[in-house]
Design a protein around this nucleic acid. Structure first.
Lengths: 248, 248
DNA sequence: AGACATGTTTGATCTGCATCAAGGCCAAAT
DNA sequence: ATTTGGCCTTGATGCAGATCAAACATGTCT
């Protein structure tokens, strides 16, 4: 066994998953040092494109603050979001030099980047990084498959409810908030971005959000601020199995 | 660097990816021996369920022959296929004890299984297995994201054309067939399974297959045997970027 | 204050796919 | 030879969500 007692080490990079988790106490300093050497930060403004599909991508990165999206586009302009990156999420693919999707900052964004070549070398000599990355990728794959069920089989109303539940959950998780009482959060996406996430038009998104409000499932303050008084009520609207785990 | 000159070793397990790729010549015998010790085969008949979502899953496996599907089901019976496993595909998730989807044999199926515990131990001591698995999982994630674009934004006709192109490609790849002249293959799925793959109803699938036939994009012999005389013509119907790579 | 841009809501209409329903094909069972 | 059952096709109808269009809300620039 290459590693010993695992512990979490804190560092300036927040939730950066590469360094945050499964760092072995004994190897820690050496490993962290090497990571420090190859890392650098990048900032983007809301709306800026980080990278276009097909462009050369010579780094991997994790989101420090802000939100980014992965989208695929068809020639005629139809767009489908295929990934939503919140802080601590990883982007990039060891072993591939070309981006497969457009990556866009939807809010101001800071990413912690690692140049690909040295990162891959580090991966070679540090097996648990590959294992951690595998774990994360499998989680993403599970999320993608939930998403496929949503896209293929859910109604517009269920899609909206599902998205709100997903954001509420992730938000609560980030804030480490207790899962009691009202849940309050700001939508990090425009109606159009929500539509791209859900495979709908922005008009349908708008209508269904209004409908959920009218039916008392959610409350709206302005256009982005959401209040969920009864999370179970929202969950019932998602169409998912009821025992899907409460705010995880 | 833990490994040396990589080479492919052949063995009775066909395309099994775990053992097929990236096996280091020097470590080979030891590693293969340990894999042999923990592997076993399982057979299923067409239509049999391999495992239900939520069930305990104490193995990982790769498909040797036949076809399996991963599907998610909503309480009211709506179904969405989220994975299609052809020979050499991997199923299961190190680090999780419960199946997240229904796994079903759609044809007679043979899988090469590894009990999870020893497999995970082997992964610990054999870093390149984790790396290989990571590579495969990232490929699957890419495929899932293509699939999301299909589910969210493509028309019924584009969905059918895309599915046919996917199967034609994988089929051709398996058979190592040259990519010239007519492409001929048998659909491994019923109309209903195609519908579950595409987020459609079986009636719509039937109608659109007929329409592609009527329009000369494909020819049909019986209900399952497909002849594609001009693959580019089919690709044009998919809505994908034209330069999506010819038959690979 | 007015003009403009961006994002959102709401209404009217259209349409692609779902739904409901009936019948055809074919292989296996009796 | 007929029945059975699985799979597939085709037709008629309905509806959820797309599309087209207009107006509103909010913030910012001049």
């Amino acid at each position: 066994m290459a590693h010993h007692d695992l512990q979490t080490v804190s560092h300036e990079c927040g939730d950066c998953p590469i360094r945050h988790r499964a760092v072995c106490a004994r190897c820690e300093s050496d490993e962290l040092q090497r990571l420090e050497q190859i890392k650098y930060y990048r900032s983007y403004q809301a709306g800026q494109t980080v990278i276009w599909s097909g462009d050369r991508m010579d780094f991997v990165a994790s989101v420090v603050t802000g939100i980014a999206t992965l989208t695929q586009t068809m020639e005629d302009g139809r767009r489908q979001m295929v990934g939503l990156l919140l802080p601590s999420d990883f982007v990039g693919r060891p072993g591939r030099t070309t981006a497969a999707y457009d990556v866009t900052a939807t809010t101001d964004l800071v990413m912690c980047c690692f140049r690909k070549k040295p990162f891959e070398e580090l991966m070679q000599s540090t097996p648990h990084i590959a294992q951690r990355l595998l774990e994360m990728t499998l989680d993403e794959l599970d999320a993608a498959r939930e998403w496929m069920l949503l896209l293929g089989r859910k109604t517009a109303r269920e899609k909206i409810a599902s998205l709100l539940a997903i954001i509420a959950r992730r938000d609560a998780h980030l804030k480490l908030k207790a899962a009691k009482g009202s849940i309050v959060f700001d939508l990090p996406l425009t109606r159009e971005e929500m539509a791209d996430y859900l495979g709908l038009t922005l008009e349908t998104v708008s209508r269904q959000v209004s409908a959920l409000k009218r039916d008392g499932v959610i409350e709206l303050e302005g256009k982005r601020h959401i209040i969920v008084r009864d999370f179970d009520l929202l969950l019932e609207e998602t169409g998912d199995d009821s025992d899907g785990g409460y705010l995880v």
